[in-house]
Design a protein around this nucleic acid. Structure first.
Lengths: 213, 213
DNA sequence: ACCTGAACACCGTTCAAGT
DNA sequence: ACCTGAACACCGTTCAAGT
């Protein structure tokens, strides 16, 4: 049922995931679902939890310098969310409330503390990391609530608007109409986002941080 | 009407903003609103646009080194979104489609190009900046769709769950139950987020970048 | 120019009842 | 243990009609 809901979200957007629609997919009456799930929120939570299920923290954060470990963790998180972009935002509220999320969070905190950050700072960074991963996935163009069919139309419409702006007032916007409304290389896009995050972390880290381990 | 909708979102969450509810607030029948707005999406768009209305780009990005200008722009964006946290996410899809958003975007691109980034990279950074600002505001705890009344209850519930986790498996999570579920100093939180962003940008910038201006 | 009434196709959810 | 029927209080939206 959770998988079916995720599949539905992937194709038609998160808004299409309704109790009634899901029941229809199962060839069953809407009320039947209430036997398996307490209410819709519980279903959405379960969808969020599922996102983290396949992340193998141990394999990611055991060897190498902390920057690389952190990068691998964030990259794995992003990859997990990318599997279901429409549902990715559900993950943000669920990391701290499911087994696999705990594993991920604890490891990240551990890693940051070992790197010399104090616990409070490690918490801020870990939260920021999670939010950044979600942000990268739930990004432009086309809200996650949109069906895949409409996405392309929305994108070109947006692009057209930008391209027709007055050139004298907004030269860079007009020039960048395409670049601002689409992502040509997905992998490069995510690499850039993660690079930026890691660079930020390294940038704010106190220079003479001790390494207790 | 847009202001009323924002006010409603502030108090009861974005989910409370419905055509029918809004009509009720105005002491009018739901269908009356369709005279002033084509449909609900148009209303949400207008709410998103309103968020940028008070940003005075010229005052922010005219003097000083580019890092400071960029910081001021992002800070102003964050401040603008913070005025209506529940509606902040609406801004993300609207920056490129309203007057004040264009002003903001063009200025940011301009600034980045002057700083030595090529136009494509400047676009990526500007998009990232916008997303980061939204992310910082639409953050934990309590989804933007939640009413203010419920927020506190949700927060303490989450905290309790974390505090009761097995200490041997998740020592850092248990220790950080409070830190992970709340923000004690709002200003420090936002400063941290913006610092991290700026540090990232400086980190990825090519060292010998030329300064054409 | 601005609003209403009636109607339609959707929601989530409860609760008693069926097998 | 698992599902249904009927019902309720909500949505957004259209369209003809009122003033």
């Amino acid at each position: 049922m959770v998988d079916r809901a995720l599949a539905l979200a992937d194709v038609e957007g998160l808004d299409a995931v309704t109790i009634r629609r899901l029941a229809q997919e199962f060839g069953v009456t809407p009320m039947a679902l209430y036997w398996h799930v307490r209410n819709k929120d519980e279903l959405l939570d379960a969808m969020g939890d599922r996102l983290f299920a396949d992340i193998d923290v141990d394999a990611l954060a055991s060897t190498g310098p902390w920057q690389q470990q952190l990068r691998r963790l964030v990259a794995a998180l992003v990859a997990a969310l990318r599997a279901h972009p429409a549902a990715a935002m559900l993950g943000a509220q669920r990391v701290l409330f499911c087994e696999s999320g705990w594993e991920l969070a604890e490891r990240t905190l551990q890693l940051l503390v070992k790197a010399g950050f104090e616990v409070g700072m490690a918490c801020d960074i870990a939260s920021y990391a999670m939010q950044t991963a979600v942000m990268l996935v739930v990004r432009r163009p086309g809200e996650p609530t949109t069906a895949v069919d409409e996405r392309e139309a929305i994108t070109t419409a947006k692009r057209t608007v930008l391209a027709q702006l007055p050139r004298d007032r907004y030269p860079l916007l007009v020039e960048s109409a395409v670049a601002l409304t689409s992502v040509d290389d997905e992998e490069a896009y995510y690499r850039f986002g993660i690079d930026l995050f890691i660079a930020g972390i390294e940038g704010i880290r106190p220079k003479g941080a001790k390494r207790p381990s």
